[in-house]
Simulated assay, not measured.
Amino acid sequence: MKNLYLTQDNLRKFIESALLEDVGTGDHSTLAALPNGTKGSAKLLIKEDGIIAGLELAKHIFQYYDPELEVEMLLKDGDLVKKGDIGLIVNGLAASILTTERLVLNCMQRMSAIATKTHRLASIISHTKTKLLDTRKTTPNFRMLEKWAVSIGGGENHRFALYDMIMLKDNHVDFAGGISEAIKATQSYLKRKHLDLKIEVETRNLEEVRLVIETGGVDFVMLDNMDCDTIREAVALIDGKFLTEASGGITEETIKDIAECGVDFISVGALTHHVKSMDISLKAM
Rank of each mutant, 00 (worst) to 15 (best):
Y5H: 13
L69N: 04
G87E: 03
V212R: 05
K117Q: 13
M226L: 11
L243Q: 09
I61P: 01
E207H: 13
C261K: 09
D279M: 09
F265Q: 08
I266Y: 05
T25S: 15
L75D: 05
V218E: 01
L121G: 00
N91H: 14
D164G: 01
E101Y: 06
L44Y: 04
H28G: 08
V268K: 02
D164K: 12
T99L: 10
Y64C: 10
V104H: 00
Q109S: 08
K43Q: 15
F220W: 12
L88W: 03
E70G: 01
K82W: 07
T215L: 01
H119P: 02
N106F: 03
A182T: 02
G153S: 11
I51T: 11
K147V: 00
V90I: 15
L55S: 08
N171Y: 08
V275F: 05
N141K: 14
G217Q: 11
F242L: 13
N10W: 13
K43V: 05
L98R: 00
Q109H: 09
E146P: 04
I51W: 02
T128C: 08
Y163Q: 10
L4M: 13
G249V: 12
A234F: 04
I114P: 02
N10F: 10
T128V: 07
I124C: 13
G40M: 06
V81I: 06
T254V: 03
H60M: 09
Q8D: 15
K2A: 12
D22Y: 09
R136E: 14
M144L: 14
S96C: 09
A284Q: 07
I125M: 14
G177A: 00
A246F: 08
K43H: 14
V150L: 02
K47I: 05
I213M: 06
N91D: 13
K131F: 15
F14D: 05
K43L: 07
R192G: 14
T135P: 08
G37V: 15
